[in-house]
Design a protein around this nucleic acid. Structure first.
Lengths: 226, 226
DNA sequence: AGGACGACTCCCCAAACGGGTTATTGCAAG
DNA sequence: CTTGCAATAACCCGTTTGGGGAGTCGTCCT
């Protein structure tokens, strides 16, 4: 974190300011954001646009370090916007700024490459701090958002296994199947008859409501059973 | 965020203070943390321990709202510690506080249920703020940590697909296989002969270096090809 | 004592699978 | 313009898979 206070007054004229572009369809809010950026120390407004329709070109001419991106915009949403910005130049940091806090939009943004996710209800001061932080390689998120991101990592493993009543032995067989073992090889591996392997798999298919090996493996992995 | 300044002096005597337990093997740092918590407004020290050996019982008697957890401790690491705390009571927030910033330890913590991850190089003020934030349902993380968490969501999809030279058609066939379609059904679905389906799968198995359907599906899902 | 259930084994049998081989079409890169 | 490759299709042939059913043994719970 650069501590501006340790520099003499006016020092920032000699250092690189952070170039910020804004994408926000609401004119009033966009004006407010522009004001915020132009008046904050160390920032300069690189561009300001009401939608993402021409984002590829705008990014090239604006040459921003950080983009503040709304989601709900006419023509092309910020979900696409962030993907396009990142395809144009991965070094540009994209900070989402939206009212949406549903998992669907959140994780779409993240997979598309967003570097931060702020809700509009957060304060202006927080937004300015977030722009600084995202520029410095951080990942600012509203508290509730960060919490949901971490929740995505939690293991729903034991519950899923219990949900389908998969036994330890069945899980073991399924795991070997997913590693390319045939019934016979699985039998040799865990010292049971291939017929028993088959029986276990029959039970697994019933419990998971699937038809065949590949489908069972897919479901087991997606539900984190194996 | 509760704004204490709006309450009359001494108001916090009437409100619930946040109970904090500390797990930290370094005696000097532990003392410092104790001091920090006892002197901060709105916090009360619920317990302070040099390791996680008896964490189950301690959690019950201390009854903390928030646990500050080091990772590198003798006997039982904080990685296990966080898991055990969460198994004892999911409502207790666990804030990791460590020097480690490697992906391995980080993501182990997160899957084990950690609610925040601060590096020891962060300031005391940040730590106090983080305890408050984690108590309020946030997920405080050091900037670099948050960034790496978000990076984990980025799609390595196209690269993995390119890595193995899987074509669009092959991906489509593989996806249907993972949904329980037989060769014949896949053929009907995408209007090609089951023999062609077989041919595609033969190529897929070669490209992915696998033997059979289940293994191919497992690899494809894990490598995010499908 | 009886019942439920997990783990285990075996049989029959039809369908599905997977390896090998060969061949045509069409498109794109060299 | 030819070489390469994806996509298509077909054949043979042995093996694997998966759906039936029928049965033993041991443990845990009622």
């Amino acid at each position: 974190m650069t501590n501006f206070r340790y520099f003499p007054e006016g020092y920032d004229r000699y250092m690189q300011s952070i170039r910020v572009s804004i994408y926000e369809d609401n004119a009033k809010l966009r004006d407010l954001l522009e004001l915020l950026i132009t008046h904050a120390d160390g920032f300069v407004l690189a561009g300001s646009h009401p939608d993402c329709r021409s984002v590829e070109g705008e990014i090239r001419t604006d040459a921003p370090d950080v983009v503040i991106m709304d989601i709900d915009m006419p023509g092309r949403s910020g979900l696409e916007g962030v993907r396009i910005v990142k395809e144009t130049d991965v070094n540009i940091r994209v900070l989402m700024h939206t009212v949406f806090d549903d998992d669907d939009k959140l994780f779409t943004c993240l997979t598309n490459g967003a570097d931060g996710y702020l809700l509009k209800k957060d304060s202006s001061a927080q937004l300015v701090r977030a722009v600084q932080e995202v520029y410095e390689g951080g990942a600012p998120m509203s508290p509730g958002i960060a919490h949901r991101v971490l929740e995505a990592f939690r293991q729903p493993k034991p519950s899923a296994k219990k949900e389908y009543n998969i036994t330890d032995r069945e899980q073991q067989v399924l795991e070997l199947l997913s590693r390319g073992f045939s019934y016979r090889m699985i039998g040799l591996e865990i010292s049971i008859s291939p017929e028993t392997v088959k029986k276990h798999l029959k039970n697994i298919y019933q419990k998971l409501h699937v038809q065949c090996g590949p489908e069972a493996v897919a479901k087991a992995i997606r539900e984190r059973i194996i």
